Simulated scan of single mutants.
Amino acid sequence: MMKSLGSIRRSFAPWADPASKPFISVKNVTKKFGDFTAVDDLSLNIYTREFFALLGASGCGKSTLLRMLAGFEQPTSGEIILDGQNLAGIPPYRRPVNMMFQSYALFPHMTVENNIAFGLKQDGMPKADIAERVGQMLKLVKLEKFAQRKPHQLSGGQRQRVALARSLAKRPKVLLLDEPLGALDKKLREETQFELMDLQQELGLTFVIVTHDQEEAMTMADRIAVMSHGKVVQVATPAEIYEAPNSRFVADFIGDVNLFDGTVTAAEGGSVRIETTGGIALRMASAEKPASGAKAAVAIRPEKIRISRQPPAHAPINAAEGEIWDIGYLGDMTVFHVRLKDGKVVKASSLNAVRAVEDPLGYDQQVWISFGEDSGVVLKD
């Protein structure tokens, strides 16, 4: 019986152990295409059995990095070490990795069975061993009944699983996934995310996934590397990336966020006082002590902001008056856009914990927004 995913994930943190050795080390890698630098002096470590995500907008260099891991591109400078072996000059077919492409790249004239067996036949594996391995892969992705079908006779989710089975058939040490769920509809994509997590745990492999979908990365990955313009901006667990972004870019890129720009007026004890450009007085918990007069920003997630008809007890600190400008009902939660007196629009979200709410907030109502000292993070840039 497979061990609970939760029990494994709670204790899995080899990056925090100084004695742990990285399974993949990317060391000062740069990749240029003519005058364009796709990957810029990038370094990161990935550990055995880690589900690692490269997350960023189009053109940030994440797919180029994945292709260098696969061997389809060679670094202009720097080196990539996998399980103690420098991959320089090693062609893709000799690397202990396999890549699953966004398009799936299935052979349309071949059956599911033959698609999965293709790489094994190319390697000269005996027929009996191929049949056994293909049977194992079909069972793994729950496609035993579809072995004789061709790709056009399958749904998008089934084709995705055939591509996955083919990628796993050669038992690579690392599976590289390039936007693997992009062609699936929302519900199937969410289901497949958890299937991939369970599969990765069962096989004990290292997965490296490239995605621009923040939810996808947050759901599946043990750690995320947020990339921008060929560089890694932050590497951390999903919770750390979301709750403690290390820069304005990461705070703004991951999920929804409200950013309050201002000037530091004082730093005392474990908190910092900031006066925003709109005249709101903030007092936020902060381990760092920026100098008085320094520019700073405070990032606060919408779910951390409360809305009330009356001013909170701690007003005017960490509070402001405004008007409900827009309301978005999403089923599980309601999102409010509150326009403050200085014109700034703040987003706040409220969980719909019960089916009906007495006297709900409506458009154009005057309200107060408020938040606690530990609700946001102080950013220096």
Results as ranks from 00 to 15, higher is better:
residue 76 T to I: 01
residue 57 A to W: 09
residue 61 G to F: 06
residue 62 K to G: 07
residue 33 F to T: 12
residue 52 F to K: 01
residue 83 D to Q: 00
residue 83 D to T: 00
residue 35 D to Q: 14
residue 40 D to M: 08
residue 86 N to E: 06
residue 24 I to A: 06
residue 83 D to A: 12
residue 52 F to E: 01
residue 46 I to P: 10
residue 84 G to R: 04
residue 39 V to C: 08
residue 39 V to I: 06
residue 19 A to K: 15
residue 51 F to C: 10
residue 38 A to Q: 07
residue 69 L to V: 01
residue 57 A to F: 14
residue 47 Y to K: 05
residue 67 R to E: 05
residue 56 G to L: 09
residue 61 G to Y: 01
residue 90 I to V: 15
residue 45 N to I: 04
residue 65 L to Q: 06
residue 50 E to K: 12
residue 53 A to G: 05
residue 45 N to V: 04
residue 33 F to S: 09
residue 25 S to L: 08
residue 22 P to R: 11
residue 70 A to W: 01
residue 75 P to K: 12
residue 33 F to A: 14
residue 89 G to C: 08
residue 64 T to C: 09
residue 28 N to F: 02
residue 53 A to R: 00
residue 66 L to T: 05
residue 39 V to A: 02
residue 81 I to H: 00
residue 17 D to F: 08
residue 35 D to E: 15
residue 64 T to I: 13
residue 74 Q to G: 01
residue 73 E to Q: 11
residue 30 T to L: 04
residue 71 G to C: 08
residue 55 L to A: 13
residue 57 A to T: 13
residue 16 A to G: 13
residue 60 C to S: 15
residue 22 P to A: 13
residue 38 A to L: 10
residue 72 F to W: 07
residue 81 I to Q: 00
residue 70 A to P: 08
residue 68 M to I: 06
residue 44 L to I: 01
residue 62 K to D: 04
residue 26 V to E: 03
residue 41 D to L: 07
residue 43 S to R: 11
residue 71 G to S: 10
residue 60 C to L: 12
residue 68 M to N: 07
residue 27 K to A: 05
residue 46 I to M: 06
residue 59 G to V: 11
residue 74 Q to V: 06
residue 42 L to Q: 10
residue 54 L to P: 05
residue 53 A to I: 07
residue 81 I to W: 00
residue 85 Q to S: 05
residue 24 I to L: 14
residue 38 A to S: 14
residue 19 A to E: 15
residue 90 I to S: 05
residue 37 T to W: 08
residue 66 L to K: 02
residue 56 G to C: 13
residue 16 A to M: 15
residue 66 L to A: 04
residue 47 Y to D: 10
residue 40 D to Q: 05
residue 22 P to T: 08
residue 45 N to M: 06
residue 88 A to K: 11
residue 20 S to R: 12
residue 78 G to S: 02
residue 43 S to I: 09
residue 56 G to M: 13
residue 25 S to P: 04
residue 68 M to D: 09
residue 67 R to I: 04
residue 79 E to F: 01
residue 32 K to G: 00
residue 77 S to R: 14
residue 33 F to E: 13
residue 61 G to P: 02
residue 26 V to F: 07
residue 47 Y to M: 11
residue 79 E to P: 01
residue 44 L to F: 10
residue 85 Q to V: 13
residue 17 D to C: 11
residue 53 A to V: 03
residue 31 K to I: 02
residue 75 P to C: 11
residue 73 E to G: 01
residue 79 E to Q: 09
residue 71 G to T: 11
residue 78 G to H: 05
residue 55 L to E: 09
residue 23 F to K: 04
residue 62 K to Y: 07
residue 89 G to W: 08
residue 51 F to K: 10
residue 79 E to G: 03
residue 47 Y to G: 12
residue 19 A to S: 15
residue 90 I to A: 03
residue 21 K to N: 11
residue 81 I to F: 00
residue 41 D to W: 10
residue 45 N to E: 15
residue 36 F to M: 10
residue 34 G to M: 08
residue 58 S to E: 07
residue 88 A to W: 00
residue 42 L to S: 01
residue 31 K to A: 02
residue 60 C to A: 15
residue 50 E to R: 09
residue 65 L to Y: 06
residue 52 F to C: 01
residue 39 V to Q: 03
residue 38 A to D: 05
residue 65 L to M: 15
residue 77 S to E: 15
residue 59 G to N: 12
residue 59 G to W: 07
residue 31 K to G: 04
residue 85 Q to R: 11
residue 81 I to P: 00
residue 62 K to N: 06
residue 89 G to Y: 06
residue 69 L to G: 03
residue 63 S to I: 07
